[in-house]
């Protein structure tokens, strides 16, 4: 077992453990912290996959911006108590069962697909900022521009929804 594999398993355990933590912890603040940890684990995976740019962006955008926003909202609402209301155990069980079945079914279906290859471990440069930037602005300039439309509408939304109406 080389160092990459050890890292893979470590990050995997961390990702799944923390993801379970997000779902199971009673305190929303803990959930946020767990989610941030999950994102760090996923960023680690990105590094293993030679997706350096994504790793950085994931930390900056997700863990940095989005999750702080979440944390901020939770703090604003003062939801850091442990007395978070739970759904009845029946509903919870149903959730677990359906999620688990979904997982098993997909795994069962997909594991028969034998045409999947092995990820080559030699480093490639597809994840470098330079390459991505060239692909983005050569081939994917249309989606790039369109995402500005999306942001514009989201911005309007935040204003329309967030602003207090003075009446």
């Amino acid at each position: 077992m080389d160092i990459l594999q050890i890292l893979f398993w470590l990050l995997t355990i961390m990702a799944i453990g923390c993801a379970l933590g997000v779902v199971l912890s009673r305190n929303p603040v803990n959930s946020v912290i767990f989610l941030i940890l999950t994102f760090f684990a996923i960023s680690g995976h990105y590094l293993l996959l030679n997706a350096q740019f994504l790793a950085i962006v994931n930390i900056i955008v997700y863990a940095g911006a989005i999750m702080v926003l979440f944390l901020f909202v939770i703090m604003l609402m003062n939801l850091n108590a442990d007395t978070e209301p739970q759904k009845s155990w029946l509903v919870q069980l149903a959730g677990v069962v359906s999620g688990g079945t979904l997982f098993l079914v997909i795994i069962a279906a997909i594991s028969r697909a034998n045409l999947l290859g092995v990820i080559n471990t030699e480093t490639s440069n597809i994840g470098l900022i330079k390459v991505l930037g060239q692909v983005l602005f050569k081939h994917y300039v249309l989606p790039f521009e369109l995402s500005s439309v999306l942001f514009l509408s989201a911005m309007i939304g935040a204003i329309v929804i967030g602003k207090k109406d003075m009446e």
Partner: peptide, 11 residues
């Protein structure tokens, strides 16, 4: 496209 349709509708 789906997101550009959906997000305004949430709002």
């Amino acid at each position: 496209g789906i997101e550009i349709i959906s997000i305004p509708q949430y709002i």
